[in-house]
Amino acid sequence: MRASKVAHRPVGLALGAASGMIAGVAFKQAWKMIGHDDDAPDATDEDRTWQEVLLAAALQGAIFAVVKAAVDRAGATTVRRLSGTPAPTSPGKRLPPPSPEPVADRGC
């Protein structure tokens, strides 16, 4: 394992935890701003309507995705600036190689 990847791992974990907390605070503020109760509904809260539960879930997902992307991007930029090399990527984030073209059946 490369040294940059080993060094980047604890930083990535810390940034991930921080981004989760930031997103949680941002969601609570956004939920209050759109005029709903102080607490967002849980999916199993039967006192809330489907519309309210689904709106809360969509808003929460969007906020978490934006915060995660911003933190990941800032972390990668910082690693590149400090080390001069791109931040390591996990194998799951790489695109697979293109598959070969299928061979046409020639009906022998």
Rank of each mutant, 00 (worst) to 15 (best):
Gly92Tyr: 06
His8Ser: 14
Leu15Gly: 03
His36Ile: 04
Lys93Trp: 12
Ile63Trp: 01
Asp39Glu: 10
Ser90Gln: 12
Val11Ala: 15
Ala76Lys: 01
Ala74Met: 11
Asp72Tyr: 03
Met21Arg: 07
Asp42Tyr: 14
Pro100Ile: 07
Ser90Tyr: 13
Glu52Pro: 00
Pro96Glu: 10
Lys32Val: 08
Gln60Phe: 03
Leu13Cys: 09
Ser83Thr: 15
Lys28Tyr: 06
Pro96Leu: 08
Arg106Lys: 12
Lys32Arg: 11
Arg81Gly: 13
Asp42Gly: 15
Ala7Gly: 02
Leu59His: 02
Thr44Arg: 06
Leu82Phe: 12
Pro88Ile: 06
Arg2His: 14
Thr85Ala: 08
Pro98Met: 12
Leu13Glu: 13
His8Phe: 14
Lys28Asn: 07
Arg106Thr: 10
Ser90His: 12
Gln51Asp: 12
Trp31Asn: 00
Met33Asn: 06
Lys5Ala: 14
Leu95Thr: 09
Val71Cys: 03
Ala23Phe: 01
Ser19Met: 07
Asp72Arg: 05
Asp37Ala: 14
Ala65Leu: 15
Met33Arg: 05
Ala14Pro: 02
Ser4Phe: 04
Gln29Pro: 02
Thr78Leu: 10
Pro97Val: 14
Asp38Cys: 14
Gly12Gln: 07
Ser4Ala: 07
Gln51Leu: 12
Ile63Gln: 01
Val79Gly: 01
Leu95Glu: 13
Gly75Pro: 00
Asp42Lys: 11
Gln51Tyr: 06
Asp42Trp: 06
Leu95Gln: 14
Val25Asp: 06
His8Tyr: 10
Ala65Lys: 05
Ala57Met: 09
Ala7Cys: 04
Ala30Phe: 03
